[in-house]
């Protein structure tokens, strides 16, 4: 059978990324231009600044993806692009470029949901995932728990009612003066501190459903900081460690509850927060004694990249699910 080569393009937030993936599995190139340094001076991602970076970088990044893969433009079979969810202005740069490229090459356009891409990142590295599986999607914009029948079919068991996990990391990191981006900053501080020296709430852990809420935890952390400060007892690293622990315990326990209720043997993790070391090791630890295998992408495929978009695009290509040239970009989730 002929190899299928898909170009993936991803510009939903602050990374301009392009990648060529063969047969939905083999990454031939994976180029990521991160704007994190630029946004750090603003204390978070500024949508207009991100869009301005994307339009200047996009051609170079895509060209590099072809060069790294040793391919000519004509060699690809289709162009896959993230069109939701994300920052609309940022998405539109990747989407418009992808349309122009696909049309010019007379290749099909494939629309990929950014979160489907994150989930698919697992398929790029693991061949032994047993379905059905439970999947924990945790990123800067989303936190949800899915029951997956296979890579293309799933139902949402629950999601966050307010802040996403990554958002809580960012806000708390800023409040604690640990900098941006918040995930790595809190993880680093937590390594210097110890959880359990004070007690923060494990929100919704007493409930029997799969809903999350992190806004309350964020507020509790802020109040705790003020209280400790007043008493002259504030150890930022300890507080960061307790915050991280409180957040990931909820993620892990809810995932386990879902796994046992639905009798699945695999738990998948996806999204930027899945790069958190404590989350990964706690999930491993808690599943060890049960017959459940945990899968997560390697660190570089947890954060935003285009290989996952090309991979998910392949799934659509083989089903002839092509997008129209009228395809638009959407900020929020239409389906997940």
């Amino acid at each position: 059978m002929k190899d299928i080569l898909i170009l993936g393009i991803e510009t939903s937030c602050d990374e301009t990324a392009a990648s060529v993936v063969k047969n939905g599995r083999h990454i031939l190139s994976n180029v990521i231009n991160s704007q994190v340094q630029i946004h750090a001076q603003f204390g978070g991602v500024v949508p207009e600044v991100a869009s301005r970076q994307h339009i200047e970088n996009i051609a170079l990044v895509v060209d590099q993806a072809f060069a790294d893969a040793g391919l000519e433009y004509q060699d690809i079979d289709a162009v896959a692009v993230t069109n939701e969810p994300g920052l609309v202005g940022a998405l539109l740069v990747g989407l418009s470029f992808a349309k122009g490229l696909a049309w010019s090459l007379q290749r099909p356009l494939l629309a990929v949901n950014h979160l489907h891409g994150h989930i698919y990142a697992n398929m790029l590295e693991h061949e032994d995932i047993k379905f059905p599986a439970v999947c924990l999607v945790v990123s800067g914009g989303h936190t949800s728990l899915l029951l997956m029948q296979d890579i293309n079919h799933y139902q949402v068991l629950g999601a966050t009612r307010d802040d996403a996990a990554g958002e809580a990391f960012d806000k708390v990191a800023r409040f604690l003066g640990l900098g941006y981006p918040g995930g790595p900053a809190i993880q680093k501080a937590a390594q210097e501190g110890q959880a359990g020296k004070m007690k923060l709430p494990r929100v919704f852990l007493d409930r029997q459903d799969y809903e999350f809420s992190f806004s309350g935890l964020k507020t509790a952390t802020m109040n705790m900081k003020k209280k400790l400060e007043k008493a002259g007892e504030l150890q930022v690293c300890d507080l960061a460690a307790e915050f991280q622990q409180a957040l990931i315990e909820v993620l892990v326990e809810k995932s386990l509850q879902a796994a046992s209720r639905y009798g699945v043997e695999s738990i998948l993790m996806a999204g930027g927060v899945a790069a958190n070391q404590e989350l990964r090791s706690l999930m491993e630890q808690r599943t060890e004694s049960r017959k459940i295998k945990v899968f997560c992408p390697s660190l570089s495929l947890c954060t935003d990249n285009a290989a996952m978009i090309a991979g998910m695009g392949y799934q659509q290509f083989i089903r002839n699910c092509y997008a129209s040239l009228r395809l638009n970009a959407y900020p929020s989730l239409s389906s997940l």
Binding site: E48, S51, R52, H54, I55, I58, A59, V62, D63, Y73, V88, G89, L92, V93, G94, L95, S96, F97, A98, K99, G100, L101, A102, W103, S104, L105
Partner: peptide, 19 residues
């Protein structure tokens, strides 16, 4: 319009690069 300019430019860059 910032967004309008980028839609046109991204489209044209994509066409021009591939061709």
């Amino acid at each position: 319009s910032f967004t309008g300019l980028r839609i046109g430019m991204a489209t044209v860059k994509g066409i021009a690069m591939a061709a």
